[in-house]
Design a protein around this nucleic acid. Structure first.
Lengths: 201, 201, 201, 201
DNA sequence: CTATAAACGAGACGGTACGTCGCGTCTTGTC
DNA sequence: GACAAGACGCGACGTACCGTCTCGTTTATAG
């Protein structure tokens, strides 16, 4: 056992939490790139080694910090239980509104942008991002859409995954490309476009 | 005038080109983050100062290198002249196929991912990216869609910008999130979804 | 009594010995500086705290380890009983030969060099070194020289301490400066020089 | 040329000197071990890399700093030109007095002790120490002693190197072992002992 | 057809952060 | 309560690049 994985049972939870919180605070204050592991350690009152002992990189800390924030956000980070009012468009709208709000928040927005940027050159981080954030949300969304299909709200031959890619893609497009600010009206417009033709005649 | 803007007329075009090409090569070989300005200078056989004289950052070099590659690519980087076969869906498909091909190419893909990542924390670079790449393409696409609207291929009340955001958003979503590889079939599926309801009844 | 001196009666002698032996082994293998307290603990199969409980520093462990080796060496580390053959030069030669042998041994040489080096910046360690090693040997040597003086082997006005400093100084000079290897012939030469004029005419 | 030795012609002499002086100051203030390369860099107003570019280790900096101090000290660090009054004992005394003064000075003493300590575990440093400090001084001393031998001040069969080892050994012994403070009277005593028998009857 | 000023290659510089190592202390069971 | 194990806060290590700053050396007009 050369890397000699540390024992999670002996982990100092006080330090653990301090690191996650320092990360969120600093990224909100300075921006993702401007935050160094050293700065996180200093702010958290922690040794640098304690960060490197439990995470492989700044990106991994950011991911857990983000995950932590989403988990404690209303709606469980849009990944937990999806609403089912019987109206799929309405339910999608509510979820997308929630995500849009998070994306534009001072704490989550820059953190998430930085995380996705870091993941471009870090396959392990990208994997973790997909597994911990994207895939759970995607699963829940697909389940809700499958329900809508059974009920005939959506045409039986519609490709649900492509539908998700477009709706969420539009949000990420604005988050990452900064063409124009995220805005709720455009969520309505996008839902309008895709659902005009998806309902069975 | 102490900093004194350098004189473009006296610029060494040999070095200029060598820098752009070294950048493309190195990013393709090592990945965006792993490439340093020092490495580009060394590979190009150029002094570091020559890079900093003409560009403000590695990202700016990458943007010009990318722009250069796109300009010499078939289709003029999808920004120049859009085709007009009379069938808007077919024309969009052709353009999106082209972009998809670029995104998956060994040279352009990683370079563009890295560029977008760098732009997350560099507003000037983000601005330049929008102005030089995104906006021209968007303008051309909007023009082609306006034509389609005039011809009644698209409903008069459809929001053209949101349409673009969704279609391109789906592509960028897969480019940047790495949920699944870019693939032409999904372009067809996405066009299918959005155009079912956009045609006037 | 928060720090509360540990109770020597409850000391684990097995661990005690393992630490001293691990220290000697590791220093012989890797050199003094390359050996860390952590490495000693690991090699001895002992917790780090067990070392810090009984010694104030690595140097202190090294001193005890060295002392332990010398005590079990022939001649009692040249500090115990000095020979008295009636010929002071011969007796000095025998003692110096013994020390020279220890200085050039794989186990004692590097350990002692490292110890003296560490003592340069650690007054407590220096003090302990003098008290435990240097002074006892010096006392015994002075006693033997006093005997020689009484017998008229040495001039009555000779300064015995300076004599010791020169003879031993020459040995330490070569041990610590590495000008040339320690060698028995030079011991003979040095004895020859100092005793030519010390005998009463 | 992988390590790519830097070009001495382009060296910043201002930084060079600042580093040597910061080293001397800091060692005098804090002691050798307590001085880190980082502290030297900070005090000298220099990047750490500038130190590592020109020296392999803290010890090497210390050696040059020491050499620099000795070179500018009266007597050229006892290595340059030896006096020749015609009386070898007197000339040796003068030189040893000078060295003794340096050894007890606040600037040179701790620096030299630390250097010798560091050299115990750094063969390259030890080599450099011998070549730059010890050997030149030794050569000059041997030359003066050879002269004395020619003149019959010293017996023809005396081993000059051993003589040097003893005289200087006694000084280093007190410098490094701290048995008692260096003191001029003991220099006289040691000269007295060795020269009683070295003069031709 | 110089000469002169600029852009150039090379790379040393003052810095910042990296990820690692070892320090000496603290914590958690086990014997 | 001493012990093995090892996480902790800390601080220095030696490295990699950053962006700036000299250095000569081309080089390409302007006199």
């Amino acid at each position: 056992m050369p890397p000699s994985v540390p024992d999670p049972a002996r982990r100092n939870e006080r330090s653990h939490r301090a690191i996650l919180e320092a990360t969120v605070e600093l990224v909100a204050e300075l921006g993702y790139e401007q935050v160094s592991v050293e700065a996180i350690a200093k702010r958290a009152g922690v040794g640098k080694q304690t960060i490197y002992r439990w995470w492989p990189s700044k990106g991994a800390v950011a991911l857990e910090a983000l995950d932590d924030r989403l988990r404690t956000a209303p709606g469980g980070g849009s990944s937990g239980s999806w609403p089912d009012t019987g109206d799929i468009v309405e339910d999608l709208r509510v979820q997308m509104y929630g995500v849009s709000e998070l994306f534009t928040s001072r704490e989550v927005g820059p953190l998430y942008q930085g995380l996705i940027a870091a993941a471009q050159c870090d396959p392990a981080l990208s994997r973790a991002h997909l597994d911990q954030l994207i895939e759970p949300a995607s699963v829940a969304c697909r389940a809700r859409l499958a329900l809508a299909k059974e009920r005939g709200e959506i045409r039986a031959d519609a490709d649900v995954q492509t539908l998700i890619d477009m709706l969420w893609g539009a949000l990420y497009y604005r988050l990452l490309l900064h063409t124009r600010p995220l805005d709720l009206a455009q969520i309505d417009l996008s839902l309008d476009i895709v659902f005009r033709g998806l309902r069975d005649a």
